[in-house]
Amino acid sequence: MIFQNVIWAITLTGMGLVALGFVYAITQAGRPAEAAEAARVNRRSITLRRGLFLALLLLGIGIAWASLRPFPIPPQHAPLQATQVVDVIGHQWTWDVSQTHLKVGEPVEFRVTASDVNHGFAIYAPDGRIVTQTQAMPGFTNKILYTFDTPGTYRIMCLEYCGVAHTGMTTELEVAAAGDKP
Protein backbone atom coordinates (compact mmCIF):
# COMPACT_ATOMS: atom_id res chain seq x y z
CA MET A 1 0.00 0.00 0.00
CA ILE A 2 1.24 3.48 -0.87
CA PHE A 3 2.20 5.34 2.32
CA GLN A 4 0.69 8.64 1.14
CA ASN A 5 -2.68 6.93 0.58
CA VAL A 6 -2.65 5.69 4.18
CA ILE A 7 -1.94 9.24 5.40
CA TRP A 8 -4.74 10.55 3.19
CA ALA A 9 -7.21 8.01 4.60
CA ILE A 10 -6.22 8.78 8.21
CA THR A 11 -6.52 12.52 7.55
CA LEU A 12 -9.95 12.24 5.98
CA THR A 13 -11.08 10.07 8.90
CA GLY A 14 -9.79 12.59 11.45
CA MET A 15 -11.29 15.59 9.68
CA GLY A 16 -14.51 13.63 9.16
CA LEU A 17 -14.76 12.90 12.90
CA VAL A 18 -14.29 16.60 13.69
CA ALA A 19 -16.98 17.43 11.12
CA LEU A 20 -19.34 14.85 12.65
CA GLY A 21 -18.92 16.42 16.08
CA PHE A 22 -19.83 19.80 14.67
CA VAL A 23 -22.77 18.44 12.64
CA TYR A 24 -24.14 16.74 15.76
CA ALA A 25 -23.85 19.88 17.91
CA ILE A 26 -25.31 22.06 15.14
CA THR A 27 -28.33 19.81 14.67
CA GLN A 28 -28.96 20.00 18.44
CA ALA A 29 -28.25 23.70 18.75
CA GLY A 30 -31.73 24.93 17.99
CA ARG A 31 -33.47 22.95 20.80
CA PRO A 32 -32.87 24.61 24.17
CA ALA A 33 -32.65 22.19 27.09
CA GLU A 34 -34.59 22.53 30.36
CA ALA A 35 -32.48 23.37 33.42
CA ALA A 36 -32.44 19.80 34.78
CA GLU A 37 -31.66 18.31 31.41
CA ALA A 38 -28.97 20.93 30.78
CA ALA A 39 -27.27 19.93 34.04
CA ARG A 40 -27.42 16.26 33.05
CA VAL A 41 -26.00 17.01 29.58
CA ASN A 42 -23.26 19.09 31.16
CA ARG A 43 -22.22 16.23 33.46
CA ARG A 44 -22.23 13.83 30.51
CA SER A 45 -20.08 16.19 28.42
CA ILE A 46 -17.49 16.42 31.21
CA THR A 47 -17.30 12.62 31.40
CA LEU A 48 -17.05 12.40 27.63
CA ARG A 49 -14.24 14.94 27.57
CA ARG A 50 -12.29 12.94 30.14
CA GLY A 51 -12.72 9.84 27.99
CA LEU A 52 -11.62 11.69 24.87
CA PHE A 53 -8.60 13.10 26.70
CA LEU A 54 -7.52 9.62 27.77
CA ALA A 55 -8.14 8.14 24.33
CA LEU A 56 -6.20 10.87 22.53
CA LEU A 57 -3.39 10.70 25.09
CA LEU A 58 -2.98 6.95 24.59
CA LEU A 59 -3.23 7.34 20.81
CA GLY A 60 -0.62 10.13 20.79
CA ILE A 61 1.81 8.21 23.00
CA GLY A 62 1.32 5.05 20.93
CA ILE A 63 1.91 6.77 17.59
CA ALA A 64 4.86 8.76 18.90
CA TRP A 65 6.46 5.61 20.28
CA ALA A 66 5.85 3.58 17.11
CA SER A 67 6.98 6.33 14.75
CA LEU A 68 10.14 7.31 16.62
CA ARG A 69 11.49 3.81 17.32
CA PRO A 70 13.65 3.17 15.42
CA PHE A 71 14.41 6.82 14.83
CA PRO A 72 13.39 7.55 11.23
CA ILE A 73 16.50 9.61 10.44
CA PRO A 74 19.82 7.74 10.13
CA PRO A 75 22.76 8.70 12.36
CA GLN A 76 24.38 11.81 10.90
CA HIS A 77 27.76 11.49 12.58
CA ALA A 78 28.49 7.77 12.16
CA PRO A 79 29.22 5.48 9.17
CA LEU A 80 25.99 4.14 7.61
CA GLN A 81 27.38 0.85 6.19
CA ALA A 82 25.75 1.45 2.81
CA THR A 83 27.03 -0.46 -0.22
CA GLN A 84 26.29 2.48 -2.52
CA VAL A 85 27.27 6.08 -1.69
CA VAL A 86 26.09 9.12 -3.64
CA ASP A 87 27.36 12.65 -3.03
CA VAL A 88 24.83 15.32 -3.95
CA ILE A 89 25.45 19.07 -4.22
CA GLY A 90 22.65 21.50 -5.02
CA HIS A 91 23.46 24.65 -6.96
CA GLN A 92 21.22 27.36 -8.38
CA TRP A 93 19.79 25.61 -10.49
CA THR A 94 21.38 22.19 -11.10
CA TRP A 95 22.10 19.03 -9.17
CA ASP A 96 25.64 17.67 -9.03
CA VAL A 97 25.16 13.93 -8.37
CA SER A 98 28.25 11.73 -8.11
CA GLN A 99 26.53 8.54 -9.23
CA THR A 100 23.22 8.24 -11.10
CA HIS A 101 23.10 4.47 -11.71
CA LEU A 102 22.05 2.47 -8.66
CA LYS A 103 20.79 -1.00 -7.76
CA VAL A 104 17.58 -2.24 -6.22
CA GLY A 105 17.76 -3.93 -2.82
CA GLU A 106 21.08 -2.44 -1.71
CA PRO A 107 21.11 0.47 0.74
CA VAL A 108 22.20 3.81 -0.70
CA GLU A 109 23.71 6.59 1.38
CA PHE A 110 23.00 10.03 -0.06
CA ARG A 111 25.21 12.81 1.33
CA VAL A 112 23.39 16.00 0.50
CA THR A 113 24.62 19.57 0.68
CA ALA A 114 24.41 22.85 -1.23
CA SER A 115 26.93 25.33 -2.57
CA ASP A 116 24.88 28.52 -2.52
CA VAL A 117 21.33 28.60 -1.09
CA ASN A 118 18.95 26.09 0.51
CA HIS A 119 17.53 23.43 -1.81
CA GLY A 120 15.26 20.47 -1.16
CA PHE A 121 16.52 17.09 -2.36
CA ALA A 122 13.46 14.93 -3.09
CA ILE A 123 13.40 11.61 -4.93
CA TYR A 124 10.26 10.88 -6.94
CA ALA A 125 9.50 7.24 -7.85
CA PRO A 126 8.52 6.27 -11.40
CA ASP A 127 4.84 6.43 -10.30
CA GLY A 128 5.26 10.13 -9.43
CA ARG A 129 5.28 9.79 -5.61
CA ILE A 130 8.00 11.10 -3.30
CA VAL A 131 9.88 8.24 -1.66
CA THR A 132 12.26 10.28 0.50
CA GLN A 133 13.76 13.73 0.88
CA THR A 134 16.03 15.98 2.91
CA GLN A 135 17.16 19.57 2.83
CA ALA A 136 20.33 20.60 0.98
CA MET A 137 21.77 23.37 3.11
CA PRO A 138 25.04 25.27 2.58
CA GLY A 139 27.55 24.43 5.29
CA PHE A 140 25.81 21.20 6.33
CA THR A 141 25.61 17.65 4.99
CA ASN A 142 22.37 15.76 5.54
CA LYS A 143 22.57 12.00 5.11
CA ILE A 144 19.75 9.79 3.81
CA LEU A 145 19.84 5.99 3.93
CA TYR A 146 17.40 4.55 1.41
CA THR A 147 16.93 1.16 -0.25
CA PHE A 148 15.15 1.19 -3.61
CA ASP A 149 12.68 -1.67 -4.00
CA THR A 150 11.52 -1.01 -7.56
CA PRO A 151 13.70 -0.55 -10.66
CA GLY A 152 13.10 2.36 -13.00
CA THR A 153 13.83 6.00 -13.60
CA TYR A 154 13.57 8.14 -10.47
CA ARG A 155 13.39 11.90 -10.71
CA ILE A 156 15.20 14.25 -8.33
CA MET A 157 13.37 17.54 -7.82
CA CYS A 158 14.18 20.59 -5.73
CA LEU A 159 11.47 21.09 -3.08
CA GLU A 160 12.89 24.17 -1.36
CA TYR A 161 12.25 27.40 -3.22
CA CYS A 162 15.66 28.59 -4.46
CA GLY A 163 15.02 31.34 -7.00
CA VAL A 164 13.48 31.97 -10.37
CA ALA A 165 14.49 28.68 -12.07
CA HIS A 166 13.63 26.53 -9.03
CA THR A 167 11.11 24.48 -11.02
CA GLY A 168 13.66 23.36 -13.58
CA MET A 169 16.14 22.01 -11.04
CA THR A 170 15.69 18.32 -11.78
CA THR A 171 17.78 15.32 -12.72
CA GLU A 172 17.32 11.56 -12.86
CA LEU A 173 18.52 8.39 -11.19
CA GLU A 174 18.47 5.04 -12.99
CA VAL A 175 17.77 2.17 -10.60
CA ALA A 176 18.49 -1.28 -12.04
CA ALA A 177 16.95 -4.56 -10.93
CA ALA A 178 19.12 -6.97 -8.94
CA GLY A 179 21.38 -8.81 -11.38
CA ASP A 180 21.12 -6.11 -14.08
CA LYS A 181 24.11 -3.92 -14.81
CA PRO A 182 23.62 -0.60 -13.02
Binding site: V18, G21, F22, Y24, A25, I26, Q28, A29, G30, R31, P32, A33, E37, A38, V41, N42, S45, R49, L52, F53, L56, L57, G60
Partner: peptide, 21 residues
Protein backbone atom coordinates in the same frame (compact mmCIF):
# COMPACT_ATOMS: atom_id res chain seq x y z
CA UNK B 1 -3.79 19.44 19.49
CA UNK B 2 -5.13 18.79 23.01
CA UNK B 3 -6.01 22.38 23.96
CA UNK B 4 -7.61 22.96 20.56
CA UNK B 5 -9.70 19.79 20.41
CA UNK B 6 -10.55 19.22 24.06
CA UNK B 7 -10.93 22.73 25.37
CA UNK B 8 -11.70 25.31 22.72
CA UNK B 9 -13.50 23.25 20.04
CA UNK B 10 -15.16 21.02 22.64
CA UNK B 11 -16.08 24.06 24.73
CA UNK B 12 -17.73 25.71 21.74
CA UNK B 13 -19.66 22.56 20.84
CA UNK B 14 -20.84 22.27 24.45
CA UNK B 15 -21.86 25.91 24.41
CA UNK B 16 -24.00 25.60 21.29
CA UNK B 17 -25.42 22.15 22.12
CA UNK B 18 -29.09 22.40 23.20
CA UNK B 19 -28.73 26.17 23.56
CA UNK B 20 -31.43 27.57 21.31
CA UNK B 21 -28.68 29.25 19.29
Amino acid sequence: GFPVFLVTAYGVLTNIHRSGL
